[in-house]
Computed example of a mutant assay.
Amino acid sequence: MTTLVKPPPIDPAKSPIENVLELTQLNDIDPNLFTNTRPLWTPKGARGIYGGAAIAQCLSAAQRTVPDDYAIHSMHCYFVMAGNAEIPVIYHVERVRDGRSFITRTVQARQRAKVIFTTTMSFARNNSGGTKRVEHQSSMARVPPPKDDTDDLRSGGGPGEQGPFQSQRIDILNDDSYDPTIKRTRQWTKVAGNISKEGGHQAHLSALAYMSDSYFIGTVARVHKLWRWATGSRSDRQSTVDEMTLKKLLSLDDRVLKERAGMDESTIQRLRNGENIVKEYPMIGMMVSLDHTIYFHNPRAFRADDWLYSEMESPWAGDGRGLVFQKIFTREGVLVATCVQEGVVRLKQPNDSKI
């Protein structure tokens, strides 16, 4: 059973993201309890449900307990266990504090009484900073604008389904450098369709939270030009991964092998001569998120159904972990959120039977 109650029909008046993130309030048990109305998505090769769904639904649950004249400004999350898409999620909202300027909420996502995700959020009352303010923001880089007339990568959906948001990747900045800390991975994202008036600014905030987890910790792999292929179940991956990886490498032209895989000409020549270089080539063995923080700077100054520009960088990786920073701007250059994520990033080890 993927939900506690049978999901209602899809509401065509709402955007796909609103339907995906819809919550059912369990008033008969506790008004502070919520559950996912519709089944959750597990990305291909992932260990559990898409992390952005847990982030966004926790935010949606907390927003249901906060007055409309307050808006989220910070959210600190921890991924405790992989969520199972076959089991309903229960979101428990704890009303920690209701102050004159700030409200604090903690939300735990649970499956079978075990916590899989926890977050603490702070909401600020609108215009509580006064008429005189200290203000500044980072500038948005000059990048190619999004293309509205092309097919986009639809993300966040199950097999055979179109996901609830679109993305367009931009070439990695400084991709030819040997220094991963100066590289910037960049993309445009927006939700599919139009968010309804009924959803209000809360729906746009939840949608941004959902999209913020897209390719986030994967930035570490991209700036190091690491590859990650996972096929089949864990028990049979060891016998097939080298063959699948070699087949994939052979299908790529020399330019892509240089730019994306970081191979030099001698290594490419050895590959073309039939040598199996896979065992000596670094590959991701495990990559999962540990924590996720979002600072919302202008919670009412953007629409998630218009293009948002994301720029990510990784200032550090080591000891089997990696750290990534992300800035999210409107297409007009308004900084609407800054995000931080740390995750497990482990390479496949020699003679490692587990990936």
Rank of each mutant, 00 (worst) to 15 (best):
I268M: 11
V334G: 00
W307D: 04
N36Q: 08
G163T: 14
R234G: 06
G163H: 01
P9V: 14
L40V: 09
R184N: 02
D30Q: 13
F79L: 04
T104D: 13
P8R: 00
Q137L: 05
H92S: 03
S155Y: 02
Q326I: 05
A304E: 01
R97I: 05
E86C: 02
Q63S: 14
V288N: 01
V89A: 08
D175T: 05
L290T: 06
D253C: 09
E94W: 08
T330F: 08
H224N: 12
F165D: 01
H136Q: 09
I72D: 03
I170K: 02
T118K: 11
A317F: 13
C58M: 10
V89K: 06
V107H: 06
A109S: 14
I328K: 00
I72P: 01
Q349R: 15
T293S: 11
H224K: 09
M286I: 12
L153G: 11
A109E: 07
L205P: 00
E259D: 08
I328D: 00
R133V: 10
N194T: 15
S155A: 13
V134S: 11
D149T: 11
S289L: 04
S235E: 10
E243K: 15
T3N: 13
A71L: 10
Q111F: 11
N126L: 15
Q111H: 14
W188T: 13
R154A: 07
V340P: 00
L252T: 08
E94C: 08
I55A: 04
R100C: 09
A61M: 12
Q166A: 14
V134K: 12
R105K: 09
M286D: 02
R303Y: 11
F325R: 14
A124I: 14
H297N: 03
P350Q: 08
E332N: 15
M1V: 03
N84R: 13
W227V: 08
N32A: 07
P31E: 15
E311W: 13
D264K: 12
V66M: 02
N273K: 15
F117A: 03
D176M: 05
G52Y: 04
P88A: 09
L249E: 04
N36I: 04
R255D: 06
Q162I: 15
Y215P: 03
I103P: 06
N351Y: 07
D69N: 15
A71D: 12
